[in-house]
Write a protein that binds this DNA or RNA. Sequence first.
RNA 1: GGAGGGGUGACCGAGAGGCCGAUGGUGACGGUCUUGAAAACCGUUUUCGCGCAAGCGAACGUGGGUUCGAAUCCCACCCCCUCCGCCA
Length: 413
Amino acid sequence: MIDIRLIREDRPLVERAMELRGSTDAIGPVVEADERHLKLLREMEGLRARHNQTSKQLGRMKERPPELMEEMKDLGEQIAELQRGTKEAKDALDALLLELPNMPHESVPEGKDAEDNIIVRSWGTPRQFEFEPASHWDIGERLDIIDFVRGVKLSGSRFYVLKGLGARLQRALISFMLDLHTKEHGYREIYPPFMLRKECMVGSGNLPKFADNLYHDAEEDFWFVPTAEVPLTNLHRDEILDGSELPLRYVAYTPCFRREKMAAGKDTRGIKRGHQFDKVELYKYVRPDDSDAELLTLLTDAEEVLQKLELPYRVLQLCTGDLGFASCKTFDIEVWAPGCGEWLEVSSCSNCGDFQARRANVRFRAEVGSKPQFLHTLNGSGLALPRVLIAVLENCQQADGTVLVPEILNRYM
RNA sequence: GGAGGGGUGACCGAGAGGCCGAUGGUGACGGUCUUGAAAACCGUUUUCGCGCAAGCGAACGUGGGUUCGAAUCCCACCCCCUCCGCCA
């Protein structure tokens, strides 16, 4: 959420930021709603002050003049009326504010869409094959470790079944990633609920705008996690943390559930994009001054997974037009998949600034006795499993059709 | 799912229509005393909104209602605890 006070104080700045992201004319309605709300609020509070004062006097009186009582009753009704109006105005304002994306960080390169993203660096060299590398769906079926037909039988399109060593490989990757981040990078492992209350989705920025990508229970207030970022954002919702606790670094493995309506018809082959996938997620709560630096270490923490797996990858910095809703600065990591012949996004590491902290109301006190302030949150996959699985299968395939898994996984297999 | 009890500030815990944003205690912070510390004593210590400010407004699980006035009364919902039932 963008601070309404910033919009009041420096509207052009915010408007420019919105334009950089490709959304125009978003601020005008906000300013109007804000003005309407403030007008009603001031009016209501004025009447209330009067009402409270007289009411207090009445409490001390022995005899209550009937005409004064009459007047108070009247005033009370006016206040009630104004209160309804104020609440409506506030709800309208909040609804607009919740739809505004985060402002890009000043260091983010300008651009319209993914075409304008910048390759920051590459690691490893794509392997030269002495044979035509197979796609993971061919490898998976040939080795009987990915079963597409039965996935569809169970749940429909975009579902698959991992079998035998396929399931085992995924589990090995999860364990490896969790161990790496907890033992070597200082993250604390979290096992969160996979179903959350609606307000959690608002806190992270998934609602109200992206409801059509979420699954939820029809009867109860349970929303399936689309990423562990959501429970991790809300872990400290409505809390004031002690500055000495920061930074907090968490890592969580969860399945992720997404409708993928927007991507209908895209990536239907293989396991690249399913309605359910596993992911290990990195998350940080940090002091505002530290978030730039913490983003870089978050990124290298995620990269190290691929380095240890010896999989070639590249790092992209997203341009302003391609940033996610909640992010002010993002780096993507893409792993090379020689079978599909494409770079696959396996991580998106973002600094959300105070955007999510405002929504979820997570604050900290810099020092004992000082005023609470919003902290910064960062998140990044570390990494998304199916695509790493793809990369392992396709990069490590051999001429005889078998797959030789990266050495680091040996102790997990 | 059924029965009963309960949700108050960082924590414990009072308050049962106006004198209550809330007694008291613990903790934390500052001070006095002390060579230093402990103890003792004194003081400070919720958050948000509006306002240049003085100040005003709001919040006692959440949302409604009664009343000039609600932490306190009424209704609904949520959560926690105990017991019973069911169950991986």
